[in-house]
Nucleic acid binder design. Structure first.
Lengths: 187, 187
DNA sequence: AAAGATCTACCTACTTAATGGTAGGCAATG
DNA sequence: CATTGCCTACCATTAAGTAGGTAGATCTTT
């Protein structure tokens, strides 16, 4: 059994993360998966439906990973480091963040997708806020800045680092940026 | 005299920064400027020509600003803060970085443009490297990390902050991230 | 200075290919 | 027998780019 729907999601995610939402077509996706263009519409009637499913699947994977980090890593900086490692999957494949690729298209993006990616990042910000707040409380994270400000700083740095990595792939550069980031959060 | 070419560059820049390179068409640009689509080809024969001119003009503006900062601001953290302020223009207009918008499209982008934006960021990295190295030498920037690593961290954080700002515009969020960034570089 | 030639900046009208999406058929499966 | 999953064949729209023309400015030659 080959799960065509899952295959479509997987290949479409690679395409969007590699070339942007406006930068790939149903024709590209059909070729990548090996079915006909019209058949995609059977699984995802419109491109927006596909985009929304992509974001939902991506968000689910992150949600699971965030919960695992919270359960398995005790200290604040360690959790942020583990969070940063999540971006490494993209680094290794030379792919950007799905939601960053969508966010760049801003105004041109269908409103539904705009809402979905806003929710994606809001979720991360809320998680980081809680993690950093706990870290400040137990003394593992430096105090003096609002957790919300630090949360935004963390996402910004990692999203930017991933962007840089795609332009200048280097085995150590992402790790270097992550190390500086985590270090700057230590108490 | 109305300089149509300059107007085309200005409007095209807004379009690319707001919706990505693949997300705007000559038809959009023609409407924005108020001339016919075919007339754009008189100034920029192909879309790649237009894109390259966009990056060149953008890079020139940054080059001038970088030189001014180096001349007018003496200390390392102050220079990085001033560098971060350069991104504020985009923040205020709700526009992303031109080269980030192009970089996201990665593989799908014409090779010529890929080379141009790589050169753009290489220039920034080199400038930051020199600035941070000087800051370490005069004791205004913390030592312990390679200037090249810190340079990449600076760009990553600011590019990411600009991305976040477009999703969640907030009068203070960008400034907050910039403050944390500059603070983390202090000796 | 007049006459012709050339150039600039724009136009209308078009081509070709690609876009997202639709209609309807057909074979396998439960 | 109805549903699922895929197909061929199509549609309307939009994409970038081309062809060829026109009005006006500018340069050249007599």
């Amino acid at each position: 059994m080959r799960d065509t729907r899952a295959e479509l999601l997987s290949q479409a995610e690679t395409l969007v993360r590699g070339r942007g939402y406006a930068g790939f077509s149903y024709a590209d996706l059909a070729e990548a998966v090996g079915i006909r263009k019209a058949s995609i519409h059977h699984h995802f009637p419109t491109k927006v439906d596909l985009g929304a499913a992509l974001v939902a699947a991506y968000a689910d994977r992150y949600d699971a990973a965030l919960a695992a980090i919270q359960a398995e890593v005790p200290d604040g900086p360690g959790r942020i480091a583990a969070y940063g490692q999540l971006y490494l999957g993209g680094v290794e494949q030379g792919l950007g963040c799905l939601c960053a690729a969508l966010a760049i298209e801003g105004e041109a993006l269908p409103e539904r997708l705009r809402g979905d990616i806003a929710a994606f990042f809001k979720g991360h910000l809320a998680w980081l806020d809680a993690i950093l707040r706990a870290g400040q409380a137990d003394g593992s994270v430096r105090s003096g800045s609002e957790p919300a400000v630090l949360a935004r700083y963390v996402i910004a740095t990692l999203e930017g680092a991933l962007l840089m990595e795609r332009l200048f792939a280097s085995p150590t550069a992402f790790a270097g940026t992550l190390a500086v980031l985590v270090d700057s959060l230590r108490a």
